[in-house]
Design a binder for these strands. Structure first.
Lengths: 260, 260
DNA sequence: TCCAGTTTGTTCCCGCGTTCACAAACTCCT
DNA sequence: AGGAGTTTGTGAACGCGGGAACAAACTGGA
């Protein structure tokens, strides 16, 4: 049924062999006898690792080679204690009294997340949002390679988006198998989303990023993450309403609800 | 400093006066002597209320007038116990032995979130993503009115997006004050985001939806929500990598990580 | 070598959120 | 009227995540 996933098209999944300058001494030699290092990173931590990764990249671009947990935490917008606890789930990659080597930690987080290898991504539904996603540089710059843009509208076939041609939605299964696609992005209207999802899953996709305003049902083993623009606005509206009713007329600066 | 927010341009913020057919009997007459009804809805619940609202709208469009917590929960993709507890924070809007009146509950949730009134929204940064946001029907259909599209690129000024013209970023302050804008959407590149944010806040905006891949710092009293497309993909990649290493070669369906 | 200063990694505690389970309340049928 | 069946609303238990505080470990100077 599902295509046998054979060889992931990774680039350099091995150990080391990256800009590991001034590698901390006690990294792989003696540590971690107590905890199983590769098991069970909390979901909340996983959600923050990409933020740390981005902050590290920003620090590296500014030529900073070493940083403390305090500096990295402020760059990422979190508490330093939380940052240290998050990083401790990956292992002991810092040096006490010194801090973290930016390049080394950056590689370790990237490897833990899985962005040291390339992931093939297919985008289905090339409307306004699909266009934006296809042109989004944040995908390709982080190890995600968009291998196909699919749409069911015959009028859009062949249209160029960036450097890529829009292909027919009928080619979905062939594209997924050919490029060993594991991640699918759904940017279709709500009505088409479930059918597209089913076809992606049947073809072998096991992770789906859903922009359609619908609840997708998927079999076990398939991950779905949902991004809903109007829901985010509604959450803001709720807090906005409460601010307006707590301060009847004049301006506010009353309460911190959720600082970045 | 901040413009004195005077009269919110609401449509019908009052009580009742909506399609409240077959209103449950024990709604406003006798209930809620124990809990203060308008205080402190948990944040996790607030984040789910828009999902319930959408599910109710979908049920209403299919002509369903009454639903049980089980039905609504499956439509929203959550546990029925969680749904009932969430709704209990709003009040007792159901009828035991019967269920919930779809239209009535829909109005109550909409009122609680604050989407029974209109919210003026300004979008800053009309690139690919800004285009998509400006054309997104989910905004206007839920009480959010996009009153201006701003961009700093002189070549884009005057360009039509949908039915709206792109205006200069220099008009930001004037637009915010004129339309009493409380919610700003930032879709600029990362480097411009903080400056745009500062100007929005200084002009009186107290809620910001940020699509730029940057951590924004805002004063107390201002809410920021962040949507980052590449972070979502990276979270999927993490789980995908773990699936790939738990099942060495052949396909999976091994573990439910996070079902929708 | 030893001591002071610094920063990480970890432990403990607390509060929030989720889930189960059940009493309360309503409908319907006899 | 009364009882069986159904469904809501909520109390209690439990697990996860956040935050503070502290011991361990490293650097640098005397």
């Amino acid at each position: 049924m599902t295509s046998a996933r054979s060889s992931r098209n990774g680039s350099t999944p091995g150990e080391g062999a990256v800009g590991g300058t001034t590698r901390p001494t006690a990294a792989a030699g003696s540590a971690a006898p107590t905890r199983t290092p590769e098991r069970g990173i909390p979901e909340a931590t996983v959600a923050r690792l990409p933020i740390y990764l981005r902050a590290l990249i920003s620090l590296a671009e500014r030529g900073i080679a070493t940083c403390s947990s305090e500096e990295l935490a402020t760059a990422a917008g979190v508490n330093s204690a939380k940052l240290r606890k998050d990083l401790s789930y990956l292992g002991s990659y810092g040096t006490r009294g010194v801090g973290y080597d930016v390049e080394y930690l950056r590689y370790q987080i990237a490897r833990e997340i899985g962005v040291t290898q390339d992931w093939s991504v297919v985008i289905v539904g090339i409307g306004n949002l699909g266009h934006a996603l296809a042109n989004y540089s944040g995908f390709t710059s982080r190890g995600f390679r968009v291998v196909a843009l699919l749409d069911s509208d015959p009028n859009r076939l062949g249209e160029l988006v960036g450097e890529m041609r829009i292909r027919s939605a009928g080619e979905l299964e062939a594209v997924v198998v050919e490029h060993d696609v594991a991640i699918g992005v759904i940017a279709t209207p709500a009505l088409a989303a479930q059918e597209v999802c089913d076809r992606l899953v049947a073809a072998g996709v096991t992770s789906i990023l859903n922009f359609a305003p619908t609840v997708l049902s998927v079999p076990p083993g398939v991950d779905v993450r949902k991004v809903d623009l109007s829901i985010e606005l509604q959450i803001l509206a709720y807090h906005e309403q409460r601010k307006a009713m707590s301060a009847p007329d004049e301006a506010d600066l009353s309460r911190v609800v959720e600082s970045a």
